[in-house]
């Protein structure tokens, strides 16, 4: 996506032309200088005007943590809730008014630890909200304790001898929770992040995006082993629908199946082998997506799965419409199944 491309977009119909700056609130952004969150905020503010949704119909909901300050910086409706509970609030907002576009901003601690249960259930219910999980593998706002995505053995303030908890894989969790749209992007790659955000916004139903994000203060270089400029082409593969898994600086590497395990093969970019693994984001089963989520070398990014099914609010409203076939009669309801009359 061209950096300035979105500035030229107009809303469909006769609405005024909105720009990224229209989505900036008057509040000073209070993240640490150099925080990955700035880039994500910028990407989101750039995507918003391209969606054709008036800003009063957009709601950002968050929990607690550094990332959860996000709604204060968006000039839309916003709700900074309590730790881990953003998805519960977002579920109520979306079901109450399906006309709204609802985004949830959460982190690895907020979304996978204290709020883990809500993530599972919002995704399985297909609540039509877009979940941005900023994964920096650390608790930042409480000043540096390990998180549920911290690598095993990581030394932090609360684990001076190294963590003894195996980390969660957010993409695998989302897929196991029956999420319809599951993607991963990196905070430093704004153009690609913008593409993913746009696709998520247009997906009908739950969309889950894990954003690999750096914490300059408490976990600097969190994703450098796979996402820093010098190694990312060799350590990460972008999955694209209908395309083989090819990566490397010169597109000279690919992934193929060896039994039930991935195997990296190197080849002449002009003549890639035919047995490379092909991505299919529309596969009805989440098997391939789960396989990709489990790859460690290279690490997959992009859209793992994009399959639509009826959303929670559609099903809820559908039952209500069906029930309304019998005209509501409050007096009849108050009377209940049986009454008797006491004469004067």
């Amino acid at each position: 996506m061209d950096r300035d491309h979105d500035e030229l977009q107009t809303l469909p119909g006769s609405g005024p032309m909105l720009q990224a700056k229209d989505f900036k609130s008057d509040q000073m952004v209070r993240w640490c200088p150099g925080c990955g969150d700035f880039a994500i905020l910028s990407a989101v503010q750039k995507v918003m005007p391209t969606l054709g949704i008036p800003k009063e119909k957009i709601v950002f909901v968050s929990g607690i943590g550094c990332s959860s300050r996000f709604p204060y910086y968006m000039n839309t409706f916003g709700f900074h809730s309590i730790h881990g509970r953003a998805l519960t609030v977002a579920t109520g907002v979306k079901c109450a008014n399906p006309d709204l576009q609802v985004w949830v901003v959460t982190g690895d601690g907020d979304g996978l630890s204290i709020g883990g249960n809500h993530l599972l259930h919002a995704l399985r219910r297909n609540v039509d909200v877009k979940v941005l999980l900023f994964n920096n593998r650390i608790y930042g706002l409480t000043k540096g304790q390990y998180s549920p995505t911290s690598e095993l053995g990581k030394k932090t303030k609360s684990s001076p001898m190294g963590t003894i908890d195996v980390p969660l894989n957010p993409i695998a969790v989302a897929l196991a929770s029956e999420a319809g749209f599951v993607a991963r992007a990196v905070d430093t790659d704004l153009a690609f992040l913008g593409e993913i955000l746009t696709r998520a916004a247009k997906h009908k139903g739950s969309a889950f995006i894990e954003i690999l994000q750096n914490c300059v203060v408490f976990n600097d270089g969190a994703w450098d082993p796979v996402a820093s400029k010098d190694v990312r082409d060799d350590r990460m593969v972008r999955v694209a629908h209908g395309k083989p898994l090819i990566f490397g600086k010169n597109k000279e590497k690919g992934v193929r199946l060896n039994g039930l395990e991935p195997e990296v093969v190197t080849f002449d970019p002009a003549a890639p082998p035919r047995d490379l693994l092909m991505h299919d984001e529309k596969a009805p089963s989440a098997t391939l997506a789960t396989f990709l989520s489990r790859m460690g070398d290279p690490v997959a990014q992009g859209i793992f799965r994009a399959v639509e099914r009826p959303t929670l609010h559609e099903l809820m409203d559908g039952q209500i419409e069906q029930a309304k076939a019998a005209a509501p009669d409050l007096q009849k309801l108050l009377k209940g199944p049986e009454t008797w009359t006491v004469a004067a």
């Binding site: 519960t88 579920t91 109450a96 709204l100 809500h118």
Partner: peptide
């Protein structure tokens, strides 16, 4: 609209969201 939530916290969280909306 009745919502059988995954737990007590989600039950009130969703209610606060619905109220906000």
């Amino acid at each position: 609209k009745t919502f059988q939530a995954e737990d007590e916290i989600a039950a009130i969280g969703s209610s606060i969201g619905a109220s906000f909306a």
